[in-house]
């Protein structure tokens, strides 16, 4: 469990040490390798091609003939249509994902610090109990959760969803920070701070937090993406008037005979923020994925 983030650095830096090995494959093996890599590249990108091409076609070109062709007539009409119907929820989803990313990360940092570097007896058991919350099917809490958030007076829609995502984001953020601190912050640093007479909060605030940026990048990306993409909590606790983009997109695309061009433009619009995060911060995104694995 502790080594995941450290190991990730090995993933993100290509095999430099084994650079010489590239040429060790026989020419045939290399042709097969690159052939397969390209084939899979095309397969993986195919849905993206369909999304972009279809979203730029006019209504007349949507039929089954020539579906896979490039548009004869390029138009942004469907993008405009999709944007008009998704705009309010698009903005609301930022109001959801940004606070969730910030609050979950802070909680995760505090918990991760205590569970890795300010440990108490039984810390491992507590950690395991926390971790279990990450794997539960949320249906198992959904029925009472709906009434409880109503009863504690959370306004429906985004505020409720912020609360819920923060709560159920605690396990993963705690895991990420615990692994991060356990592998990057030496125990001696904490001991030195203790010897200097600093209490726990001072140690956390002035010694640990300044070292935490890489951990924060991971949890922020993770929580931003998962609250942005969430549909389960959203469908249980919000509607098209107060809910996030997944609800609005499903309403746009879910009709019996959907307007495919507008749906696909909508799907692209709904994916742009997370894709952007992924493209800009891709290296750390992989780190986030790696940290999602609970293993030693």
């Amino acid at each position: 469990m502790t080594a995941t983030i450290a190991r990730d650095q090995a993933v993100t830096t290509p095999a430099r040490k084994s650079g010489g090995r590239i040429n060790r494959r026989s020419p045939l093996a290399r042709v097969i390798t690159y052939g397969l890599l390209l084939l899979f590249l095309i397969i993986v990108l195919m849905p993206a091609y369909v999304l972009v091409v279809t979203s730029l076609k006019s209504g007349r070109e949507i039929g089954v003939n020539g579906q896979w062709n490039l548009p004869q007539e390029w138009t942004f009409a469907s993008w405009e249509k999709a944007w008009t119907s998704l705009r309010p929820s698009f903005i609301r989803t930022f109001e959801l994902a940004i606070p969730v990313a910030a609050i979950s990360s802070l909680l995760g940092a505090a918990n991760g610090f205590v569970l890795s570097r300010w440990r108490f007896p039984g810390a491992d058991v507590v950690f395991t109990l926390i971790l279990f919350g990450m794997f539960i099917p949320y249906q198992a809490v959904m029925i009472p959760l709906r009434s409880i958030v109503h009863e504690i007076g959370l306004p429906p829609g985004i505020p409720t969803l912020v609360f819920v995502h923060c709560v159920y984001g605690i396990p993963i953020c705690t895991l990420i920070f615990r692994n991060y601190y356990a592998t990057t912050v030496p125990v001696e640093l904490i001991e030195a701070s203790r010897v200097d007479g600093a209490g726990m909060l001072r140690t956390f605030g002035s010694v640990i937090l300044p070292l935490s940026a890489p951990g924060f990048v991971v949890t922020v990306i993770w929580q931003f993406t998962s609250s942005w993409n969430d549909y389960l909590f959203a469908i249980f606790m919000s509607n098209t008037r107060n809910g996030p983009i997944t609800i609005a997109l499903n309403a746009l695309a879910g009709a019996q005979s959907p307007d495919y061009a507008a749906s696909m433009a909508g799907a692209l619009i709904a994916s742009l923020p997370t894709l952007l995060v992924y493209i800009v911060l891709g290296r750390w995104f992989i780190g986030g994925l790696m940290a999602g694995s609970v293993k030693s």
């Binding site: 993986v44 990108l45 993409n229 499903n250 695309a253 696909m264 994916s271 992924y278 995104f285 994925l289």
Partner: peptide, 21 residues
């Protein structure tokens, strides 16, 4: 990066294109 990118997309968004495919 290409193999990993679908991970950044929501199932709701990818569902749109897979229903078409």
């Amino acid at each position: 990066a290409v193999y990993l990118f679908p991970m950044a997309v929501s199932f709701v968004a990818s569902g749109v294109v897979w229903r078409w495919l």
